[in-house]
Structures are given as structure tokens and as C-alpha cells.
Amino acid sequence: MTATRDTAAPAATDLRTRPRGFEIAPILGVLAREWALYRRIWAPITFSAIVEPVLYLLAFGMGMGALVGTIGGYDYIEFLGTGIVAMSVLFSSMFPGLIDTFVRRRFQHTYEGVLAAPVDVRELVTGEALWIALKAGVYGCAPLLVAIGFGLEPTWAMLLVPFVGVLTGFGFALLGILLAAVIPSIRTVDYVISGLITPLFLVAGTFFPIDQLPGWAQTAALVNPLYHCVELVRGFAFGIDVLAALGHLAVIALFAVVVWFLAVHLMRRRLID
């Protein structure tokens, strides 16, 4: 390599504002970097995020649907389609939040590079979770579109489903990030999948109404943010009281806020020594 006069010129990073506190610019920086990565690897991610829940929907909807018939007056595939939106959001947010974050932190040292730039842990965590949430909000719509293809009547309220998907996905992405900061090795991910993710979508009214469950499981469902996501999506499809919708939304928002603080705290402990 040879000398170049380029490095002597005034710095390109002539920040217009003094960087302090929690800022939007670094979050946009993280999102832009994720977008650059996503453009290269979108195909397998999209395939898995869309095909898996749609297969669940088709297999259970057509297979079980023939046995179950209707639930609450709705065809089972319509009931299931609205529920699987939440499952799709959970998978699209929790897995990348957990696995990608762990790999980047532990093996790729990605965050060392990001945190050497004017980005702090809060902005890094927020940017990563927001990116995952945006994808989850989009991917979560696929089962709904398939259900519409099978006869679910579209409603205007369904246009709110992506926003619910983003908010729920934000919370679960943060939960994944939080766990990525806690687990000691990649093998420990199996505990999270079997011990947390599977119960989360089974006790959420996805495949069957929760009133079929024992009392303790119904109580567990009420504190499960995914249940509230299911109720919202189902409500947007079949009709819901505004106050009830706001209540479900509040639970999901509260969940996102709590896990944001925990994820930031635990990631800071991991990344800053």
C-alpha cells in the first residue's frame, strides 16, 4: 500500500449534532447495515419464514379442519390462519433475536465493530430488534393471505395486522436478544426452543381456544404476549371491541418495554466489561 493524501482531508463524519443520549441516527445506521445484509440473504430467510407457517396452516387446517369443522362459528382453517399469524411472528422474531444475536456476539465479534462506531448498546439493541420486528410484521401476513385464499373474508381492520406483528415481533426479538446475552453456549438454544418457544405458541390459542385448557394454563395464556397477539389478529378478522383491543395492545406494549430494559441491561453486561 502506498501513501495517499486522502486521509488528510477534513473528516467526512462532520456530525451536525453532538452525539449524546439515545439517538435515532445510530438506529438508522444499524437498520441500514441490516438492510445491506438482508439484500444478500433474503431468499432463504423469506423461504423459511413464509413456507413453514403456511405448511402448518395447510396441514392442520385441511387435516384437522376436516375433523374439527368449526370453532366459534368459524371454519377451522380461518380460526387457525388468524392464529398462525402470531406463530409466524414469534418464529420470525425470536429465532433471529436469539440465534443471530448469539452468533454475532460470540463468534463473529460483529458488535465489537458496531460499538467502536458512535453507537451505544441501547441503540444497537433497539436497531437489531426493530429490524427483526419489521421482517416479522411482513412475514406474519403470509398465513393470513393464505387463509383469505381459503375463504377467510378480508376486513379493513386486517390492515392493522402488520403493525401488531411489528410490535409483537419487537418484544419477542428483544426476548431473543435478552436470552442471547444469557445463554452460555449455542447448545443451550435447545432449552429455549423446547422450554420456552414451544409452550409460548401452544398456550396462546393458536391451534385451539384457550378455554379448553386447565385453569393454570389459561392463566399462563393471559400473561403470554402471544395470546394477546392472537386475540388481536383474530379480532381484526372476526370483529373486536375497541377497549378489548386496546387492552391486548397494552399487554404487548408493556411486554416490549420490560424486555427492552432487560435486553439492554444484559447485553451491556455482555458487551461492555
Binding site: L15, A32, R33
Partner: peptide
């Protein structure tokens, strides 16, 4: 792309 992604982080 590696370089460009860091121009965002450095707010160029």
C-alpha cells in the same frame, strides 16, 4: 458493501 455499511454507522 462492508465499507458502505459502516458509512451509515459513522454517519457519513
Amino acid at each position: 458493501e462492508n465499507l458502505r455499511s459502516f458509512t451509515y454507522l459513522y454517519r457519513v
